[in-house]
Design a protein around this nucleic acid. Structure first.
Length: 263
DNA sequence: AATATTGTTCAGCA
DNA sequence: GTGCTGAACAATAT
């Protein structure tokens, strides 16, 4: 699930469950997911420490620790956070588990081991290292700023929206959703879109992300006119009655309406 | 049984 | 340097 709205949902969940709690025990069940540093250090800087803050940039989540370090989690395609009292209520693929001082556990579950676990010093530095673009929600991205980031790119609009160095947080599903709402074909070049269309892409990007953040990334809670709940071939387009089709664009499976998103 | 999958990164090529 | 494609990563569902 994890694109910007989903990860923001995890952050909220973290705030409601683990923030300001002390870690009694740290268990790294899948040490290969720790992409740098030693498991020993992960334990050293988390056990006995408190979670004191949380932040998110794009699809990256950071939990601030009282040891002055940050736990960075990337969720890949299948990661999520889960809070539970009984270990049998944990997900089936727990990779990292914290026992908290309230008797509950907070864990990072990830079926496929894409994603990453890291212990870092400074989120801002990490974001710079990764060359992540601005986060449209956190950074209050204006239309001018959006144009500044996107205008220099020559790839198709879907690829540009998904490029984390242009903007951080949009992936396959939400890029499709934004273009569907804006009525723009995913394989169009941004430069070939008329002024009005460009503005529409920006507006829909902001409104779709905001709406999804409000629903904590829960797709089924989004309005019926969203493509997210109609991502399959031959479905009737809830906006214009056209047909939903798919095609590989920017290396991913793009779904779009073959009638109101014209090339 | 072959194929697809909400993400990232890298090699190879134009 | 830019952009595109395909592969790799890993595990599951259809």
């Amino acid at each position: 699930m994890p694109e910007l709205p989903d990860v923001e949902g995890f952050r909220k969940y973290f705030n409601e469950t683990a923030l300001n709690k002390k870690i009694i025990k740290t268990e790294l069940i899948s040490p290969e997911m720790l992409r740098k540093g030693s498991p020993k250090d992960l334990v050293k800087y988390t056990e006995g420490e408190k979670f004191i803050s949380s932040l998110r940039h794009g699809k990256y989540f950071f939990a601030g620790l009282s040891s002055n370090k940050y736990l960075m989690l990337h969720f890949g395609m299948t990661g999520y956070l889960i809070y539970y009292k009984l270990p049998e209520d944990a997900g089936g693929h727990i990779r990292l588990q914290f026992k908290l001082d309230d008797g509950f556990y907070l864990a990072y579950d990830n079926l496929r081991k894409f994603g990453a676990i890291l212990l870092i010093d400074d989120p801002a530095e990490y974001i710079k290292e990764k060359e992540l673009g601005p986060d449209p929600i956190n950074d209050g991205l204006t239309y001018n700023k959006f144009r500044e980031r996107v205008d220099s790119k020559s790839g198709n609009i879907k690829a540009v929206l998904m490029d984390q160095s242009v903007l951080a947080g949009i992936g396959n599903l939400y890029s499709d959703e934004i273009l569907y709402q804006a009525g723009v074909h995913p394989s169009k070049l941004f430069s070939s879109i008329k002024e009005d269309g460009k503005k529409e892409v920006y507006k829909k990007m902001m409104s779709v992300l905001k709406a999804a953040v409000k629903k904590d990334g829960d797709h089924s809670a989004l309005p019926g006119k969203y493509l997210l709940n109609h991502r399959s071939d031959g479905e009737k387009c809830p906006i214009c009655g056209g047909k939903i089709v798919h095609k590989t664009i920017a290396g991913r499976t793009a779904y779009f309406c073959n009638s109101h998103q014209k090339k």
